[in-house]
């Protein structure tokens, strides 16, 4: 299955690429052995994610899902960002080939990891709010 036009658009012209030097939260998920790492930076204003940037090492779908995920949470309340599912990211991209579904899972996890980091920095236990962020169990290779 080939990539949709939306995926190719977000791959070729990714939104929100880069870093936020004074980020309020940074989350990184994935593993170089598996071929993808996503790092997400968030800036929080009150309870709103006012800015978000990402850096991704990975395939076309990994880059496109990162890009789409940042678009979907930018300007949103933290509680709404945490409700973003990998399915919503996939739908926004007009679908992904089955073998690339794990990329959208990574995007969802990257957001959660960044929000967790934000709470940790504030001295708040993220676990009851964000929940457990699973390791890279979707990856078949040994880490």
């Amino acid at each position: 299955m080939a990539y949709s036009e939306k995926v190719m658009d977000h791959f070729a012209n990714p939104r929100n690429v880069g870093e936020i030097p004074d980020a309020d939260g940074v989350g990184e998920v994935g593993n170089p052995k598996c071929g993808d790492i996503m790092r997400m930076y968030i800036k929080v204003n009150g309870d709103v994610i006012s800015d978000v940037k990402f850096k991704t090492f990975g395939c076309g779908a990994a880059i496109a899902t990162s890009s789409m995920a940042t678009e979907l949470i930018k300007g949103k309340k933290i509680e709404d960002a945490l409700k973003l599912t990998n399915k919503a990211v996939m739908e926004a991209l007009d679908g992904l080939p089955p073998v690339k579904v794990h990329c959208s899972v990574l995007a969802e996890q990257a957001i959660k990891a960044a929000v967790s980091d934000y709470y940790k920095r504030k001295g708040i236990d993220p676990l009851p709010i964000v929940g457990e962020i699973p390791g890279c169990e979707s990856c078949a290779c040994e880490v």
């Binding site: 190719m8 791959f11 070729a12 071929g35 090492f57 990975g58 395939c59 990994a62 880059i63 073998v99």
Partner: peptide
């Protein structure tokens, strides 16, 4: 960098190559 994103980028410039990347 990951091979598939390299392959896709080259394709956007009209170059067809392949990658041993897992993806």
């Amino acid at each position: 960098i990951e091979g598939e994103s390299l392959l896709l980028s080259l394709d956007l410039q009209g170059i067809c190559v392949s990658s041993g990347s897992a993806c």
